[in-house]
């Protein structure tokens, strides 16, 4: 475990907590893409099936459990408790455009053609595109609440820190996982545009709004 990896995990956890706190405090999930959150719940579910088959560490097990809980609670708040505040109109990204290619690719390009491994690969590919419905929603409405941008910032930071983690692991352990690295680079690229707006607008106290 290196510093990039632990900071990456903390950023990831912080992002999910920020989102939960935002929804809980405002009693509203306005501006949040329910579709992205459902995709993240699918990502964690299909990836963490190894909770039943492999044990790595207490840390690993606890974090996986916490991530799963956060994802499911978020989905419940959006589609259950606060569904009246959910902006269904603007959450119009077509999920089949993501799910069909991602499913196909996970069958074609994986490390081992076994159910658990295909599901793991599927989760990695899906995670790299799962934020697109959220980014699509922001581009459609042209604005995002500041707290939503903090959520996206920490989610993007997690991806960037994981890239540093992989470089570190490659240098020190000679370990690398091509599927994770390529997907990680792809998903980090999706955040670049957002990072630019975050630094130039949100950090200067302005609301994120697109012209």
């Amino acid at each position: 475990m290196n510093i990039f990896r632990i900071l990456g995990d903390v950023s990831h956890l912080l992002a999910m907590i920020i989102l939960l706190v935002k929804i809980w405090r405002s009693k509203s999930c306005a501006g949040i893409s329910g579709k992205s959150q459902v995709l993240f719940a699918i990502v964690f579910t299909s990836r963490y099936l190894d909770l039943f088959t492999n044990f790595f560490s207490i840390y690993n097990t606890v974090m996986k459990f916490v991530f799963l809980m956060c994802a499911y609670i978020t989905v419940y708040l959006i589609y259950g408790k606060f569904r009246k505040t959910f902006d269904n109109e603007n959450d119009s990204f077509r999920l089949e455009f993501l799910l069909i290619p991602v499913t196909g690719l996970s069958f074609l390009e994986n490390q081992s053609f076994t159910p658990l491994e295909i599901l793991w690969t599927f989760s990695i590919y899906l995670e790299s595109v799962a934020i697109l419905p959220q980014l699509f929603m922001i581009s459609k409405t042209g604005e995002a609440e500041t707290i939503t941008t903090h959520y996206l910032f920490f989610l993007g930071l997690y991806h960037a820190l994981y890239l540093a983690n992989w470089i570190w692991r490659y240098q020190t352990e000679n370990y690398y996982d091509q599927i994770a690295v390529v997907s990680g680079v792809v998903q980090t690229i999706f955040y670049c545009d957002f990072f630019y707006l975050y630094v130039t607008k949100v950090l200067k106290g302005k609301k994120l709004s697109l012209p």
Partner: peptide, 10 residues
């Protein structure tokens, strides 16, 4: 070569 499960990251 036998496949070894190495996915120790989150």
């Amino acid at each position: 070569r036998e496949f070894v499960y190495t996915h120790d990251e989150l």
